[in-house]
Computed example of a mutant assay.
Amino acid sequence: MTSSRRYLAVTTTALSCALLVSGCGYLTGGLDPDNEPLTDSRVVGTWEGTTCQASLTLAADHTAHITGLPVAADASKVTKTLNGDGTWTVSADRLSLIIGTSGHEVLSGKDGSTTVLYATAGDPDLGVACRYVRRDDYGTSTPEPNTSRPSSILAS
């Protein structure tokens, strides 16, 4: 392959990747494993979406109020969200939500020392998800998404 063809192939590939990422809005990867088990005290509170317009309010009595929970996606974005009231439980590595008659799982990770919850939409292999941080961790404002590390695609 000539030098100019190689340059064209590399440039085209890089441009395609940049367009794919920018067209999807936000990124969610780059999370470290959450090596601490989830407990009630770690999840009670209001969680704001940093990569989507969503929130999870988890009360100590195990009731939940959900807005914008992603439940379906195509290859690049959330196509359906869920709003409603329900209940929640935790296990060592996930938060389980029951909204109406449907169940949803929310997983946890770490961004530095901050616990992050995330809910994938549709096929988990697509990487389309919503990332949440507890409002108490940042006061009343929501931090900008961390896009400094490689990650999978997240919906806007």
Rank of each mutant, 00 (worst) to 15 (best):
L56S: 03
I153S: 02
S148K: 12
A60H: 11
N35W: 12
G45V: 08
R149F: 01
R131Q: 12
G45F: 11
A121R: 01
G100P: 08
G127T: 10
K80R: 14
H65K: 12
A18N: 05
D125P: 06
P33A: 11
T120W: 02
T81G: 05
G112T: 02
A9N: 12
T2I: 07
R42Q: 07
K80M: 12
R94E: 13
R135V: 04
S113Y: 00
P70D: 02
K77P: 00
Q53M: 13
D85V: 14
K80G: 05
V21M: 12
S4L: 14
D40F: 13
H65I: 08
I66S: 07
I99G: 05
H62Q: 15
A73M: 02
N35T: 08
R94L: 09
L38W: 01
V78T: 14
V44A: 01
V133C: 05
K80Q: 14
L95D: 00
A60P: 07
A129N: 10
S41F: 07
R5G: 10
D32R: 02
D125C: 03
Y26W: 09
A119F: 00
L15G: 10
L38V: 01
G112P: 02
A9F: 12
L69K: 09
R5C: 13
D137M: 04
S22M: 15
L97H: 01
Y7D: 15
T12G: 13
I98V: 15
V10I: 12
E48H: 10
